[in-house]
Design a protein around this nucleic acid. Sequence first.
DNA 1: TTCCTGCAGATTTTT
DNA 2: TCTGCAGGAA
Length: 709
Amino acid sequence: MNDLIELLNEKQKQAVLSESQFSLVLAGAGSGKTKTLTTRIIYLIEELYVNPRNILAVTFTNKAANEMKERVCSYSQKDLPLTVKTFHSFGAYILRLEASLAERNQYFQIYDDDDSKKLISEIIKKFDIAKSNLGTIKSWISKYKQCLEDYSKMEYKDQTYLEIYKRYNKALKDANCFDFEDLLLQPVKIFSNYEEVLKKYQRHYQYILIDEYQDTNLSQYQLIKYLVGQNNSLMVVGDEDQSIYRFRGADVSIILNFTEDFFGGEVIKLEENYRSTSNILNLANSVISNNKFRLGKELFTKGLDGDKIILFDCYDEEDEARKIISLILGEHLTYKDTAILYRINNQSRAFESILNKNKIPYTVVGSIAFYEREEIKDAISILKWLVNPQDKIAFERFVNKPVKGIGEKALVHFYEESQNFNNDLFVTMQNIDSVKNLTKKTKDGFIKIYEVFKDKESVIARKTVDELIDYYLDNLGLTEYFKTKDEKENTDKIANIKEFISSIKYKTSGLDTLLLFLEEFSLSASTLKDNGQNTGTVKLMTVHNAKGLEFENIFVSGMESDIFPHRNSIHDEEGLEEERRLFYVAMTRAKRKLFISFCNNRNSFGYMEQKDPSKFLYELKIDYLELKYLSKSAINTLGFKGNKTLSTNFLKKINFQIGDFVRHKDYGTGKIINIKEKNGKNLVTVDFLDYSLMDFVLEFTKLEKLSDR
DNA sequence: TTCCTGCAGATTTTT
DNA sequence: TCTGCAGGAA
Ligand SMILES: Nc1ncnc2c1ncn2[C@@H]1O[C@H](COP(=O)(O)OP(=O)(O)OP(=O)(O)O)[C@@H](O)[C@H]1O
């Protein structure tokens, strides 16, 4: 144990050994907050002989939770029963045990945003509300739950919304489901209503530790406030400059008010950064210091200056991807130590396609796109409905697929009758004769479904999760349905299902495993596929997803106005400052090399749009920058007077040779017949099939290469 | 009442 | 480029 502690600096040690009941570690990026928290857990177990059962550690993502637990256990070299979860998975865990106190049973399922939206859209049909308001209402409801149903906190007040809210919750209850916000709200309600239950959990979790406390929202805070009783110890760590989840209700003032909320709390500040070179740190600091709403803090490193940060501009997003690739190859960056970060998910497209073309292995981290495919959602819905036959949203995904005459109206009659059977849709099918107004065809459809599921209990007991998916997709006719679709529309649905099935780790049969699988899927679908096969790949992710991570080499891409800061966040100062914090988080992920790029044009909905550099780029201090790959015009625009010349060498390296076939957006396909230098740029001559010869300045033109080498 | 097709409109960030 | 859904055919 001492060996571990000796590796820490004085401030970190102070935190690990702290005897205060409440303590806050407030420190900048890369100062070892997570490491300190983890070491403290080990210290509690190994030195203070705290029973691991009595420890609750809360992390921001499930991945971080697994890693933290893994670290603690590997130090002790055994599987310890400590609880490391996200707020949401902790909430789900409590609800699973106390479901009846929240009017559910233990088989409840968790609705994702899509499911919630479907439920809401059913409800607003009965109101005079346009479909286009669905998104607004969904976020209103989320917000209302996040602030613990405090109507005075809602900016927009509307009695109709409240009425919808009531019906929505009733529908959730009838479906025996919770939405994501419920996972926090309902435990808080339980704790406030049932004192003896609260006491039980207070006794259980004597030591509570929370990472990334700056991104806590009110319901999470209240949950902790309840859990921390007279005798509980609490340590939180965070950095107000890294608060980036305001859109989810995160409130920085919660961390700033810590010493008042938890009276007498000790505050420990870590000021030494162990992650980044000093150029990276200084550059990041030059940006974040533009924020007004911050405490301001010291952050230094004893490390090397390191390389200067390379700032470069690109013609468009594909050019950006190509340049990043040539930098990765040119600078000999190891794939696995390299991450490309971006503001919005769809920026990954260009990177993926160009990385693919160049056969560079990559992993998109935290992308849920795969799990949002029709076939995957259908498979999951079947499983969800198997354990929870009250779930209409799940039922509707497969009940009429392939078509068997069960439409909207038929379902209305069916659901009406289901109320007499405790909303159990399986039992309702069993009693299909009592459903009125069904045509013969429709009724036969229901009977068909019933036949497939009538022995579901024994099938669940017998089959593993992957076998269940296979079995029911086959029997419901979905496999056949997808096969036909694959052929007709040239999709890969069957292949996707195969891939999904093979990624399932659970290999035992039975209801318990199924429940476990579904809970993990609902809470962290995006990390499911992270199965160790991703070593040796370049990582692609949003900046939000990079929170808490570190890489040797970081590319921060798409630093353009409207994207970063995002156009929807620039209307108030707080939004803008949050975007700046996001940029700060992005830069401080880098240990050794940092690259920042932006495009002068970007495709959006098939149109090429001209782009301006992000306003944050003007805040970068030139002392820490390497501008050799930045175009002259960009140097002028950004007001960098360094006046370095553009390296033509760099661009040549990327690609084009005489003899290459290329495609131009307007002129079609052609062959490069000449390349020459002109004013420091590359002038290419292309012989187009449908046009005559054309000259282009390579740097200013989008030419797609058709053949490789 | 169900099914199919063409077209308008969409993209912030996530547990 | 992709997707959901309105509107009309069956
Ligand atoms: N005392 C130390 N000596 C050497 N390395 C350290 C020390 N403390 C932390 N580190 C290293 O510094 C890096 C950053 O640590 P950690 O991720 O815990 O920081 P953090 O404050 O949680 O960062 P962030 O807030 O940016 O997520 C890690 O690689 C960690 O191993």
